[in-house]
């Protein structure tokens, strides 16, 4: 508990001077700074999805809630297409990690391929998600028909927006690399991008589980959470 200890320091005492300065080196590590910022950003994103989830779980217990799986006619009883989308996102996550590895080794062509793969798989994921939306609409599961549908569109939409935001930042990394050809910067940037992709992948898995659960699962979760 370093932080608690440092909060108990009496800063006016010269005795503790040496110990205090050792903590503040006066050196700025840009990568570490960006990493701190990313962690806070992920915390913000976590709060967003956490709050959505809490409202969702509460809503699953209302009388008009019809889960999206559990019965043969419900769209996600067979969630094959969602598994496929998950695979795309997983592949994107892996390829971005590979890109980082290749960047460390400075092998340009491998970097190009893996970056292209990341872009491709991420876009495939987005288009796959849009496919699901269209299918839901075609089979009469409109956004307003049922709260489960509303939450499906809402949560996947918000998730997709985060992915798109990620792509924009990712594109900027590539652009900057194209301009200054600094492998070192590319590595540290890809490291952060990879972390973001992994994190959104896990959020997606969580949403996948949450949105395609059947009524009984919701009942169990809700009773555990005390709704």
């Amino acid at each position: 508990m370093q932080i608690l200890k440092s909060l108990r320091v009496k800063p006016w005492l010269p005795v503790e001077f040496e110990q205090q300065t050792s903590q503040a080196t006066g050196l700025l590590n840009k990568e570490k700074a960006a990493s701190t910022a990313l962690h806070f950003l992920l915390a913000v994103i976590t709060v967003i999805f956490f709050l959505f989830t809490v409202t969702f779980l509460q809503r699953t217990q209302s009388f008009d809630f019809q889960a999206l799986s559990g019965e043969p006619w419900l769209p996600f009883t067979n969630a094959e297409i969602l598994w496929q989308n998950s695979a795309y996102l997983l592949l994107a996550s892996i390829s971005i990690m590979l890109a980082k590895k290749f960047a460390e080794r400075q092998s340009l062509s491998a970097i190009m391929i893996s970056l292209a793969a990341t872009t491709l798989f991420t876009l495939l994921f987005i288009s796959g998600q849009i496919q699901v939306w269209l299918q839901l609409n075609q089979s009469g599961f409109y956004i307003t028909t049922n709260p489960a549908n509303s939450y499906y569109f809402l949560l996947t939409g918000v998730h997709a927006l985060h992915i798109i935001g990620g792509i924009l930042v990712f594109m900027r990394c590539i652009l900057l690399f194209a301009v200054n050809r600094s492998y070192q910067q590319l590595v540290s940037r890809l490291k952060l991008c990879a972390r973001y992709w992994h994190y959104l992948f896990f959020i997606w898995l969580f949403l996948f589980f949450l949105l395609t659960s059947d009524a009984d699962t919701f009942k169990t979760i809700a009773s555990i959470c005390g709704f």
Partner: peptide, 21 residues
């Protein structure tokens, strides 16, 4: 802005500037 403020305070303090100072 907020990410900037937090990160700056955590990562860019000059030499000798501990949190408790």
């Amino acid at each position: 802005g907020g990410l900037n403020y937090v990160t700056t305070i955590l990562q860019a303090r000059t030499k000798g500037m501990t949190l408790m100072r």
